[in-house]
């Protein structure tokens, strides 16, 4: 068996890739996908830990995270669709009407 730390490090790297993606991309859909990447990093860490401790609770929590991810993706896409209809643009830098 490989050490569990390797998997956790992999999850960290994936999380950071997702974070950098949100930071550097202007396309709202890609930003949303990067967020999915970050969520998946969290899931990976949970699954690895669950297996490491032989505890099933972690896997159940992962199920809940998936539910939330599904809900979040649908709502996020709905918002993007509406915003696109309004601005005909999915550039995050253009969405600034809530800024002071």
């Amino acid at each position: 068996m490989i050490p569990v730390d390797w998997i956790l490090l992999l999850a960290t790297v994936l999380f950071c890739i997702g974070g950098i993606g949100v930071a550097i991309r202007r396309n709202a859909i890609v930003a949303l996908m990067s967020i999915e990447l970050m969520l998946n990093a969290g899931i990976l860490a949970l699954v690895a830990s669950a297996a490491h401790h032989g505890d099933l609770n972690g896997q159940v929590v992962v199920l809940f995270i998936m539910m939330i991810a599904a809900a979040e993706a649908s709502v996020g896409l709905a918002i993007i669709t509406t915003a696109f209809r309004k601005h005909s643009e999915v550039d995050l830098d253009q969405y600034s009407s809530l800024k002071w």
Partner: peptide
């Protein structure tokens, strides 16, 4: 503090990290 609210998601993510 108002300068922190750039309206730019990227900045927020960097701060979060």
């Amino acid at each position: 503090a108002i300068r922190l609210q750039t309206g730019n998601v990227g900045t927020y993510v960097v701060l979060m990290l």
